[in-house]
Amino acid sequence: MSTYKVPTMAEMAGKGETPEVLFWVGCAGSFDERYKAVTQAFVKILNKVGVSFAVLGPEEACTGDPARRAGNEFLFQMQAVANIQVMNGYEVKKVVTACPHCFNTIKNEYPALGGNYEVIHHSQFLQQLINEGKVALQGGGEFKGKKITFHDSCYLGRANNVYEAPREVIKALDVELVEMKRCKTKGLCCGAGGAQMFKEPEPGKKDINIERTEEALATGAQAIAVGCPFCLTMMTDGVKNKEKEAEVKVYDLAEMIAKDMGI
């Protein structure tokens, strides 16, 4: 028996190897206590399936998304140009990431600064693995037959028109997918995008994540699936606020697949 491997681009370059895909972990994936479990689940899946991948490890830096959306274009470009230099240095061709904000920025905004890669979100990557039969799902796992609702992330959905991949991944778990009233193109934001994650909300009568959590709970789902670290935080906080954390769990797609695979 061997342990899980998490090679870095530097290690692989040292051996003269190039992985097929760079797994862009992102800041939440690296530092957020809760979300690290998602990163770990995803690398376990990659190991299990035998995908040739590497991470940047300590060489990765924030894509700059929140700085750009808060208006600080200088800081965004400083981050972006540095990241692009690193990625181009390793001749990266393909990037997969679990964070829709990193996904959007690297895919849509790095080309203007000289970073051209094929970028896919982990929901799309997982869907491909499932379709190709590379992920052997037990089907009888802990989610079987359960009611699950999926919360669309703005930066995956409206921003990049990815609506079906995460749903296909969830359906592969043999669950009952229930939709919220506002879903897909009409999906309601969790409240964290546009750099809101990093400040208190403006004065109002309610927090956005509470509004969204109420809608998710109204479906009667036993779990809320998300595909974004910020959404994960916002929905988890919302469920706690409603004192439903014992009954309703919030999971990232990769966690659900890893659980079903028994890893």
Binding site: T3, Y4, I263
Partner: peptide, 24 residues
């Protein structure tokens, strides 16, 4: 290089645990 105040040298710490885990 992160919106949160963490040391950049800790960025890869998440992998330590999973690297020790045996692959099932």
């Amino acid at each position: 290089f992160s919106p949160w105040k963490f040391s950049p040298s800790d960025r890869f710490n998440w992998a330590e645990k999973v690297k020790e885990e045996e692959m099932k």
